[in-house]
Design a protein around this nucleic acid. Structure first.
Lengths: 213, 213
DNA sequence: CCATGCATGTGCATTATTTCACAATACGTT
DNA sequence: AACGTATTGTGAAATAATGCACATGCATGG
């Protein structure tokens, strides 16, 4: 009901998580699911599921549950994953190259329209997906021409800030940063970090704690 | 000071983030840094930096700041990144293969000791790093034999739960899950999710919100 | 057509996290 | 040695997020 109120960020992330089992249920499972079952699939509290959804409207039927198909559709519309998005990747190292080839991205409507690298030896190389690696110096112009909305940065850390600047010059509205440094952006550009080492370090800390007991 | 009290999880993640600029400063920069400067590098509030560190002791000098070298050392000790950790990766698709080759992991002491895949055509293939891809059916035994502590899962989603089970059978204490499904683990096994699509969906939602205004 | 059962939607209490604001204290300077 | 400046460490306030518990309301069966 509180349609105008501010939505917590954790809620948005969970919506994406909820959509995963829904996609699977749409194929195999029953057409209706309760908040309790859905919560079970996602490892959260059932009340949390209901509250998260309630931010955006009433999607369930009391005494019954949620219709899988329409709930999934609603979530996709909320998250704006019901349309395609134009991406580019900067930094064609191991990680960048693997992301370019990701079928997963394509399947979800994330279309990688360009791949960049600052290494002259890589520029011009043709990738299996049909793209040709372009020079990082042309980022701004190409991003603008192709209407790229999101940039992924998989360069070495010391190049990340400069690359982010070029992406913003080209007009991207969001950056997914895989490097270990924190990038500063303008207010017009959203940033999300995906530093895998941070996740590992979190695990390692907790492992060590357990060992100490 | 509250050395016994429970540490917030966000604090642990931020400690890892703090360590990044400290590593760089250790090479180039001044030997001392204030909470305000460090916070600036990491995009957080200075009081947050001080409070995070205060959970573990007193590392600064009033009126001066923190000694870069000793603070970094302290954080590494807290996070237990001052020693090596044995990893394995299950799922030698594009992403898994790129992670195996990651110099970044090795540099930070995460040693990949084994690589698995369930595809018979990939089993036996030799990787540049020296490892040979092993059959997923041998996960438990190999994990136990090599003393592997953390497992990375980069399989297709439908294999993830089964693989997680095998890893736990082998005695891993933590799993980093790159797939889109939520894995259930025993209490003796910590799990961390790294579903990249969730991050993209978060960005995409916020982009859409901005456009609507 | 009413009663019963079940699962949603939601106000409120609880818990967690962040930020403020200031006393405590180290250092350089006179 | 005393003063002023800078920056920490931390209690307390503010903000954010989660979880409980129950009234609400739909559907099914008698």
């Amino acid at each position: 009901m509180p349609k105008g109120s501010k939505i917590p960020n954790p809620t948005i992330k969970r919506l994406a998580v909820y959509s995963r089992p829904l996609e699977i249920l749409l194929e195999n499972g029953p057409p209706v699911i309760s908040s309790e079952k859905l919560a079970g699939h996602c490892g959260v509290n059932p009340a949390q599921v209901r509250k998260d959804l309630a931010y955006f409207g009433e999607f369930g039927i009391r005494g019954v549950g949620y219709d899988v198909r329409s709930l999934l559709q609603a979530i996709k519309q909320i998250l704006a994953t019901d349309r395609e998005w134009a991406l580019c990747i900067v930094g064609m190292g191991h990680l960048g190259s693997s992301l370019v080839r990701s079928e997963n991205f394509k399947k979800r409507g994330y279309i990688i329209k360009a791949a960049f690298d600052s290494d002259a030896r890589k520029v011009g190389k043709k990738l299996n997906c049909g793209l040709t690696i372009q020079s990082a110096s042309g980022i701004s112009k190409t991003v603008r021409k192709l209407g790229i909305e999101i940039g992924l940065i998989t360069t070495p850390p010391h190049e990340a800030q400069r690359v982010a600047h070029l992406l913003q010059e080209g007009g991207v509205g969001a950056i997914l940063n895989f490097t270990t440094i924190q990038i500063r952006t303008r207010k017009t550009c959203i940033i999300e970090n995906a530093d895998l080492s941070v996740k590992l370090e979190n695990l390692v800390y907790h492992l060590e704690q357990l060992d100490k007991i």
